[in-house]
Nucleic acid binder design. Structure first.
Lengths: 187, 187
DNA sequence: TTTATTTCTAATCAATTGATTAGTTTTAAG
DNA sequence: CTTAAAACTAATCAATTGATTAGAAATAAA
């Protein structure tokens, strides 16, 4: 009996993700979202509840996209060079757009710091842990390093990928390439 | 004949800088500023014009503080180890507060990306160039490297200090120390 | 066709924003 | 003292925010 939805939720979330990616959470208004998603504020509320939850759903979608990079990374885990390949893939993914939007995850970390919403923080932490596990696996590939070395190199890679995410928002491709190359001179 | 100001502009700017540092530009309201600065919105307007200009003045103050780190860096420029010392000093400066506020410059870069206000962008660029010049001086100290190596190492350090600024907002001190140590294993 | 149910449109809500104003108080020169 | 100029207080402005509402439109089951 009911009237049927005239939009696809997966499609409009894709649009919302793009707006948040480009502008951040606070600078994105529901009216901007409404316009870009092609539905009005009532429909946003009906499908996603509120702005915060729409942001969370956008982050989830973003994560599924990053998950594809992680999948490739996992399937091609042959040591340091594989980590480096992931760094390049990550940089390319962050640069896919005509605009310099950086990485939505890193942008969100920077915007909220430690005072991030609980669910958002959990999503980011979960992703970060998954990534670190892959770093660890590849750091240990075909070599024997003591635990302290592994731990230090893990922290190094963890902070380096964060720096790379920030860099894709404000630096040019040459600087980014130099950075990645130099980063892996160490390992 | 006129009534005299009941506040010191240098002091209230110090307060304003702290609020912007902790919350970013957009999340800081004039009412928050008014409260922390101890003067009302009219006085903010009288002394600084508007929010944007108060932010610019706060950034200028922040820069004068960083300038002291640069001075020490410049006076102690004996090669790679001096760069490393600056990294530690920078991390310590960013961590001086009970809160994790990161670096106001890096925070601002992340908040606005390439669409930053012209004057704010010029201030940040100017600082970045000054810092890079010191990096270069120390990279070249007592060694002969080809121009391409210098250029790559400069980009590496430039992005690494950005990553460090981000890290001081969200990572613990151990991770930061590991990061700095590992960064300089390369050079 | 009828009808119950859901979606959609467009307007509006209170709260907050940056900014400004009218009116009062203070101050130092004359 | 008197007084002109500046600073102060407190209120208010229009614009924007996230969120909600009332009523119209659409749809599929009966």
């Amino acid at each position: 009996m009911p009237r049927v939805k005239q939009y696809n939720e997966a499609e409009v979330i894709e649009s919302a993700m793009g707006v948040f990616w480009q502008n951040g959470y606070k600078s994105t208004s529901l009216r901007m979202l409404s316009k870009e998603m092609g539905i009005n504020q009532f429909s946003i509320n009906a499908s996603f509840g509120n702005k915060q939850n729409l942001f969370l759903e956008s982050l989830k979608l973003y994560r599924t996209k990053l998950q594809q990079l992680l999948k490739t990374f996992e399937e091609n885990s042959n040591g340091i060079e594989s980590i480096k390949n992931f760094f390049y893939a990550f940089a390319e993914f962050s640069n896919q757009n005509e605009y310099k939007r950086g990485c939505l995850m890193i942008n969100t970390m920077s915007e909220f710091g430690l005072e991030v919403d609980k669910e958002v923080g959990a999503l980011i932490s979960n992703y970060a842990e998954q990534l670190k596990a892959l770093f660890k696996k590849n750091l240990e590939f075909n070599t024997t390093k003591d635990n302290d070395t592994i731990k230090r190199q893990l922290n190094y890679l963890d902070l380096a990928i964060g720096g790379l995410g920030l860099a894709t928002k404000v630096k040019d491709n040459t600087a980014i390439e130099d950075y990645i190359e130099m980063t892996f001179n160490n390992l």
